[in-house]
Design a protein around this nucleic acid. Structure first.
Lengths: 257, 257
DNA sequence: AATTAGAGTAAACACCGTTAGCTAAATTTT
DNA sequence: AAAATTTAGCTAACGGTGTTTACTCTAATT
């Protein structure tokens, strides 16, 4: 009776997938209306037309559902980033990175509540994403918190572009050693090269650029988070402010626009 | 009978203040143990040895209590900042600003859960601190959300120091116009001068420095938030990384160490 | 001494997440 | 085709939550 003889998903599997979709959609609706703490299993059950206990056939509990939601959000963000980046030629790495930043900003601002959940999600455990870069390179990726993994995936999208841009620039005889950077100890040097270079960028590029990338990442994170929380000290010309920030960051790479 | 004939607080007022203190202390304990969403009025009542309803004599409800907690945290942060800044001479503005940054970081890292609450607190309303700088200068300070006000107060602590440092540097014939800065429109110019200059720094200083201050603020916010959330891409040499970041920011002001 | 304001209570209301035990239908296996 | 099994759903309950109402008693004020 199963339609699985031809390899496709079972009838039950289809039903199950659809129910999961309904549950998530309802949860997201409540997230938008009442914020992260306003998501209620019972309310979801009411909306989906099912008893509260039935939801446990689909998720291990509220936390599990929230985590799944978070993963979906990251997937959305990653897909949107890829879409925006692919509006530029594959070798146009600079514009692709700008598109990444721009998508990060616009997606978060258009999905503030989702972003709130994403920020507060991986702390269900003792402490959260401290491994985002720390020991990430030495740990099997499968053992990472799924949300942390998605977040890393999102960062890598930009990092890989930088790596490609580096290879391109390298061929043009760019002198990376003249890029300005504060002096630092061997320990910090190695950590930057290991964590950011290996884990995020996925390539061994010069310290000056790894430092510029890390600084830039902090700045973008600050910008996006502050705007999402409404504490950005610019309100009317945010677009332009971002552009000036991007210009400043490019100068940190030794690139003049 | 009241001890108020000599102007001091009434006996009842003392009792009340002490009870409020006990309530807050219990709430903070739960915050540390179970996170922001683990604060429960009933649990507090249990711990203080009182019926749940009794708490409503002291706070309008859970949200009100959380807001009060937040204000206390900001007061703590501000006091700690002042203490650290005052370890330097009043005219040593540069070191006082560094002390401000350093206190921000160390206090947040030592009080991550408190910081979580502070970040998510003012969003009880529709949307939160969007007025942090936007129209803050044109709005009576009393009408602001108290948490937003405290947060502004904290920023101003650093801003005022910069203003004083500016006056000092001005006398030494420093050429502010040579400080590098991306070009920008008049609209953004005015917004930066109004919001950051007037509201936070409290003085009219050159655009180059206002831009550098705003950029620096975003960077510091990014650093502190990422470290608090465990997603800073440096784990073993964070102190030194901060120092390099501070050096980079100083260069944005045109100051060589 | 009488009155008032304050702090406290118990009981109830309407929610919440989660678990246990059961029923019925859909699928697999024999 | 019949039996066995997996799956989805139910009801009912447990212990927890924030909040409101109406009532009591005690401390301060008049």
């Amino acid at each position: 009776m199963s339609s699985n003889t031809s390899g496709g998903p079972t009838r039950r599997e289809r039903m199950r997938a659809e129910t999961i979709g309904e549950i998530k959609a309802s949860a997201r609706g409540q997230l938008l209306e009442h914020g992260p703490s306003g998501i209620s299993l019972r309310a979801i059950a009411r909306e989906v037309g099912v008893s509260p206990a039935a939801l446990y056939r689909y998720f291990d509990g509220l936390d599990s559902l929230l985590e799944a939601l978070c993963c979906d959000f990251y997937d959305e963000l990653i897909a949107a980033s890829l879409d925006a980046m692919n509006e530029f030629a594959p070798e146009n790495h600079l514009d692709r990175m700008k598109a990444w930043i721009w998508t990060f900003r616009s997606w978060v601002v258009g999905h503030r509540r989702e972003f709130e959940l994403m920020l507060s999600a991986p702390e269900g455990e003792e402490r959260n994403a401290l491994s985002l870069c720390g020991e990430v390179a030495d740990v099997p990726l499968e053992e990472l918190d799924p949300v942390v993994r998605k977040s890393l995936e999102h960062s890598q999208l930009c990092g890989q572009e930088l790596a490609a841009f580096y290879r391109q620039t390298e061929g043009e005889g760019f002198d990376f050693d003249t890029v300005e950077m504060p002096e630092m100890s061997d320990g910090l040097r190695r950590e930057l090269l290991d964590n950011c270079g290996r884990a995020i960028i996925g390539a061994e590029l010069p310290l000056t650029w790894v430092y510029a990338f890390t600084s830039g990442w902090v700045r973008v994170f600050g910008l996006v988070t502050m705007e999402a929380f409404g504490s950005l000290p610019v309100q009317g010309n945010i677009d332009e402010f971002y552009k000036t920030q991007i210009k400043s960051m490019m100068k940190d790479f030794g690139i003049e626009p």
